[in-house]
Computed example of a mutant assay.
Amino acid sequence: MDLMDRRRRAVLIAAIAGGLVLLVLIGIGIYGLLRGPDAPSPAPSETALATAPTSGISPGAGPRPVVGLGGAEAFAREVAAALFTWDTTSGYGPADYAQALADVTSSVEADAAAGDVRAYLPTPPAWAQLRTHQTRQWLTIDTIGIPVAWETAVTQAAPGQLPGGAVAYTIRGTRHRGGTWNTEPVATEHRVAFTVFLTCATVHTDPHRLGDGAAETCQLLRLSQLDNPLR
């Protein structure tokens, strides 16, 4: 792919992400398709933590590598887990959790995707406040699937308008937070929905390790605004 083609594809993704114009593909009318959140979701208040039910609390974890192998849906689940799984007592900070996703982000939209990821994570001041409550977070996924709007976009796209192997998965689930309030265990739950945009390609591997000598590897393109998924 020459430099001009790369720029054209990057411009298309940016146009979709910004929500400034209708999707370049005529007749679809999807606004802000890949746009990241303008601001991070507010952290639960101390009152919310204090009055939340205490069942179903699971420990958080430090950042772990996101696996790009295994197929598009499996990768979307990996991204979702990396976005929502963190522990303020792990010794790591928001930047460390964000780096795990930066390591599997496509260079086409690296800067924009980094902004998307940061918007899903607490800011450093919020992190410090959450740490006083030993807050940890994780996600349970209820549904995951390719949204109809994306299928329409792919159908109507001209050749070369979308990056090769691009696909979108809308995920709906529950964000859990657990912590302590006056030494008592507490928890909150919040329904969430978002869309992960990614691209997958087949790469040749060592034929002695994989029988067919090839595997599908995926990279993150963008994230939708939290609770404003593609439908």
Score class of each variant (00 low, 15 high):
V11K: 03
T205H: 04
A98G: 01
A112Y: 00
V67H: 08
G56N: 09
A76G: 06
A119F: 04
L49A: 13
S90E: 03
G19N: 01
V186Q: 09
E184L: 15
R7P: 00
T135F: 15
P40G: 10
W127N: 05
V79T: 06
V79A: 04
T140Q: 08
T188L: 12
H176L: 09
V79G: 04
T170R: 09
E46S: 13
A43M: 15
A119P: 01
L230Q: 03
D212K: 13
T85E: 03
G164S: 10
P40F: 09
G213Y: 07
S45L: 12
A166M: 15
R7E: 14
A214V: 12
P65L: 06
G29I: 11
W86A: 07
Y92D: 07
T183Y: 10
P44A: 14
A158R: 09
I28L: 06
G32F: 08
A187E: 05
T135S: 13
Q225M: 11
V196E: 04
G115I: 06
G18A: 09
P124A: 05
G27K: 03
C200W: 10
G178D: 12
I16Y: 09
R191N: 06
W181F: 15
P37L: 10
P185L: 15
L230T: 08
V203F: 09
D212Y: 11
D142N: 10
D206H: 05
R177W: 13
R118W: 05
Y31H: 05
A113Y: 02
G165T: 04
I146T: 14
L162P: 02
A52L: 13
L121C: 05
A201R: 14
A201K: 12
A95H: 00
P37N: 14
L198P: 02
L220Y: 03
R77W: 04
D96W: 00
V203A: 15
W181D: 10
A81D: 08
Q161H: 01
A15T: 13
Y97S: 02
V154Q: 06
C200F: 09
G62E: 07
D87H: 01
L130M: 09
S55Q: 05
Q219P: 00
I57Y: 04
W150E: 00
A119V: 04
P159R: 12
T174E: 11
G60F: 04
Q156E: 11
L23F: 06
W150H: 02
N228S: 12
H208L: 10
P65M: 12
P163C: 03
R77G: 14
L221H: 02
P42F: 14
P94F: 00
L121F: 05
I13V: 15
T174L: 13
L69S: 14
L33G: 13
C200V: 08
Y31V: 14
A100H: 00
P40V: 08
L83A: 08
H190D: 06
V24K: 02
L12W: 09
G29V: 06
E151D: 06
P207G: 07
T174A: 13
F75M: 04
V66A: 05
A10C: 10
D206R: 13
A10D: 10
R77K: 14
W150G: 02
A74Q: 11
V117C: 01
G56V: 10
